[in-house]
Design a protein around this nucleic acid. Sequence first.
DNA 1: CTGAAAGCGCTAACAT
DNA 2: ATGTTAGCGCTTTCAG
Lengths: 343, 343
Amino acid sequence: MTIKDVAREAGVSVASVSRALNGTGGVTAETEKRIRDVAARLRYIPHGAARSLITRRTHTIGALLPDMYGEFFSELIRGIDLAARARGLHLLVSSAHDGVEDAAAALRTMRGRVDGMIILSPRADASFLHTNLPESLPTVLLNSPLRGPRYPVLNIDNHGGAHAMVRHLAVECGYRDIALVAGPHDNYDAQQREEGYRAAMAEFVPGAALRILRGEFTEESGYRAGCEMMASGKLPRAVFAANDMMAIGCLLALREAGVEVPGSVAVTGFDDIPIARYITPALTTVQVRIVDLGRSALERLAALLDAPDQATPPEADTLGCHVVVRDSCGARSPGKTSTKKAR
Amino acid sequence: MTIKDVAREAGVSVASVSRALNGTGGVTAETEKRIRDVAARLRYIPHGAARSLITRRTHTIGALLPDMYGEFFSELIRGIDLAARARGLHLLVSSAHDGVEDAAAALRTMRGRVDGMIILSPRADASFLHTNLPESLPTVLLNSPLRGPRYPVLNIDNHGGAHAMVRHLAVECGYRDIALVAGPHDNYDAQQREEGYRAAMAEFVPGAALRILRGEFTEESGYRAGCEMMASGKLPRAVFAANDMMAIGCLLALREAGVEVPGSVAVTGFDDIPIARYITPALTTVQVRIVDLGRSALERLAALLDAPDQATPPEADTLGCHVVVRDSCGARSPGKTSTKKAR
DNA sequence: CTGAAAGCGCTAACAT
DNA sequence: ATGTTAGCGCTTTCAG
């Protein structure tokens, strides 16, 4: 069932069918109707690949993501999808690339299938993109250390968020002994959050010894970090985990051991995943509007598609974060939630 | 940058380039290497649309989903994606269709872009599929009332899960006054869960008056249902919400009013979303392995792609559910979680 | 207003 | 082993 069948059945040329169905004009209202009727009767549906081969438009955007685990990525995809739908774009997702080879293959298969890319991948450095990104394919980078005029970059304000959280813990709550459960060494977000912690500690608790435990952004590693602290003999007064899942793991470890949170130890996180509001005590955390991150990325990309030559702002755009005060930090008596801006 | 450029640069025909790059054989190892080198130097990437136009393969499967909200859908996509990746397939998602028109358009644009479809949509009845599904496109239906040899269908055992939960509440916990916070009328899952509740009530608490409140599968509607119960003057001994978000909303309403859960009122849900384990009291619920649902759907579809003429089993496949006993039902003292099979 | 014809970039016969 | 050629299904000049 191709355009030819419709043409034959309607007694016209394929060109007329194309014109009629695309509303390009150049056909009588009369013949257009006849063609439409025939197409409907034959249940003709145009072939996307064939069409985009010549129009050079797929109305699809590709998303290269490192992993699909966790609420972060589902929220991100939702944000992208929401904005994409609003613009009549579809979404081709490719996630969880074990290695560079894998990510490269995924990126290459996008050629001819998408009009643009949104890339969030730790492995996507400059040379990787240079070799695997189809030439001149509009692309927006997420959470990338890359800078430069080649691609627009959207980042989360990890540093600012971590800084604000430590300030909250040190200044508003008055804690001095604040430990960090950091994320993986090779993770860009983790690095920036750690940096924010260090900077804020130096600023608000000068001279205090830093205490950093290494985690993997997983609940289990947070749990282990909690156990390590207790095993060490002296608990810190507050624990700032570099993401919510680790904060929750830590919380559970402390709770199991009978340590009061926030009475004896305050625990806070980063991300504000949905669970954060529901756990007891409700988690004080740094809110990142992940959906907005996805949405912004797509809007940026769409702008690029509309005006390909548009200059890319030299500075990376940064998505603000702010501290959401709940119960786990001990700053207030359990009850309502208040919010305040970071920085 | 097309295959022609590579051919010219390597001093061969396009056919040789195609053969070399696809490893189809029929080229000397020597020329193959030369071609590969040139392709790499020119950073040539094959054009997907052009290729699939002739091979009639896209190595992509489409997913038509009603909405991207909530953990249900992110888990589902994850399951599909996991299995897809294992088979070298990509994923074209299309979600959140406001109306039938919208869903129809989404489905039609899939033609020529995907090798098969996974459809989970309340609006996808037989005639909808007949008119909008590209002819003979392998398709698997999820959670659909449709039966028949046309498409394989995968369903959640909503009836069995609800039945098992009511049995747990009535038989194991000994409650008689069990209310249901039902889902939307027009939702297939909601209907089946309600049916399971009715059947189990008739079986285990014969003669008891049924109490059914209507919800929308949202936390807010669960909260409202909780308020309604309290306003009515007499609380039921147990509340079975047709999904976890409503159970959580109900839980919060009761908690705010100072009603003890599970001491005064037991609350249970359906789905076992991640939050269920973390809320206090931990939610007793019906576990649905959503990731497995997605995975199974894709495996089924992949089988269809490999053997298009394979007979579709006449009966719909059903994904089992089972009750996960936690704290909110009062069946046990807080602590470990136990699990038992449904039916 | 309509049709014929030329490709889009690629693969797969069919020649050589 | 390599090249030539005919399309895949569609849009878009260019004629008429």
